[in-house]
Design a protein around this nucleic acid. Structure first.
Lengths: 232, 232
DNA sequence: ATCATTATTGGCAGTCACTGACAATAAAGT
DNA sequence: ACTTTATTGTCAGTGACTGCCAATAATGAT
């Protein structure tokens, strides 16, 4: 694995990945704010670039698409779930682990991005371009779920059953997250809503990872009903 | 529900939805062929329009995006699975029903689109634009799964557990389909490969709808291993 | 400090996906 | 033939995105 004695570097060193992420995240924040204020269609690439204090050219170097500017912010949110997965002790069930330690990262990192993230997720319902970017991102996240599950079960990462399980978890997380974003639309994020979200997610993941708790399919509905906000 | 005595129509009648679908499907076939031949980037909207024998303007009236031209063809394929779902008798388990009656619609409708559909699915692995369109489509299909499940269980279509189940099924179907498309890449679609695909899908759906057959999570891998083509 | 070297950014021009507005045409009824 | 309504085509325009090169920044060597 030794790549030999590296020649002493010359010239300007490449910028660290850390810095790259910083830049992307910074741009992302401005883009999301503009999208929320004026809509996606009405926000131009030039406008995003100006707001972020970079040239339009570097904007397109960082993001291949106007809509993909939302990626870093959303990644921040999904990363929280991934972190919980990584900390999943082998002996305990996923449901219990989530109940115990899932404080949706929607609240944790870097502070104030939470509302913005939820706003984007809500926007993806009506803006096809954003939805597409959102789905692409979730699929990339699916891969990291696969890695976690593979390591946990000792199976290869490309085994079909591992990928299936990861895909199912990702899908469930998506539904629960979208639902949460809708639920806290008007009022802010209440601790109560957060608790309900965690319970829903734990229940739903339990269903796809272990099957309904008691009996057949029909029992499943009742077991979740207590946490479901019934829409008219 | 009566909308009153309709005034006798004047002027040219709107074209039937049937015709619209026909036109879209026709364009879709040409677009997919061109994408496969020269790549997505190298295929212009004008080129697709010319090939389909319509003006560029009507092309953009039919499809909002160059990449979304693949939709009708892919929809055709997913529709087959949906049909099997609709024919799912209440008393039998999903796994058995699939084993019995899932002859992947990838082969059935209108004949020769099968190879093209699989080609597109394979292309989505490398072409981000196509992948995005593919994911959007699958999410729309998810809604119809939700309807089927809701009717089957008597629960409302917007109930969270129903949506979760539908999302999980959709995700599983995606993984299995992508895997199948990869598996038959070089050689054509052999009956053997088709059988394996059906078995994998039935197994995988069994996992997310009923949990692993015997014991806990760890047993799951073994129960599927027989059907999994092990990659190096 | 100055120079050589390499990485990043900005400016500019060009292409192409996509849209709005309007003219042209097709398909009906009278 | 004339009116009415739905669809299609034409044309010009906007804006996302790319390739190319100059400008600048950050480092090591002299």
């Amino acid at each position: 694995m030794e790549s030999g004695p590296i020649a002493p570097r010359r010239g300007r060193p490449p910028v660290s990945d850390r810095q790259r992420q910083r830049q992307r995240l910074d741009i992302s924040r401005h883009a999301v704010r503009l999208f929320a204020e004026q809509g996606v269609a009405a926000t131009s690439g030039a406008q995003i670039a100006r707001a972020a204090g970079v040239s339009e050219r570097t904007l397109w170097r960082c993001f291949s698409t106007k809509e993909s500017c939302v990626e870093p912010l959303l990644t921040e949110s999904i990363g929280a779930f991934r972190a919980v997965l990584y900390a999943w002790p082998p002996e305990v069930g996923l449901t219990e682990h989530l109940r115990a330690s899932y404080r949706p990262a929607l609240a944790s990192p870097s502070g104030g991005d939470t509302e913005a993230v939820l706003a984007v997720i809500r926007m993806t319902q009506d803006e096809p371009g954003l939805r597409a970017a959102y789905l692409m991102l979730r699929e990339r996240a699916e891969e990291t779920f696969t890695e976690v599950l593979a390591e946990r079960t000792g199976r290869p990462v490309d085994a079909l059953d591992v990928r299936v399980q990861a895909a199912a978890m990702s899908a469930v997380l998506k539904v629960a997250t979208d639902d949460f974003a809708q639920a806290v639309a008007g009022q802010g994020i209440t601790p109560e809503a957060l608790r309900r979200h965690r319970e829903q997610l734990a229940d739903a993941l339990g269903v796809v990872t272990r099957g309904p708790q008691e009996g057949g399919w029909d029992a499943c509905g009742d077991s979740v009903a207590g946490h479901v906000a019934e829409a008219p």
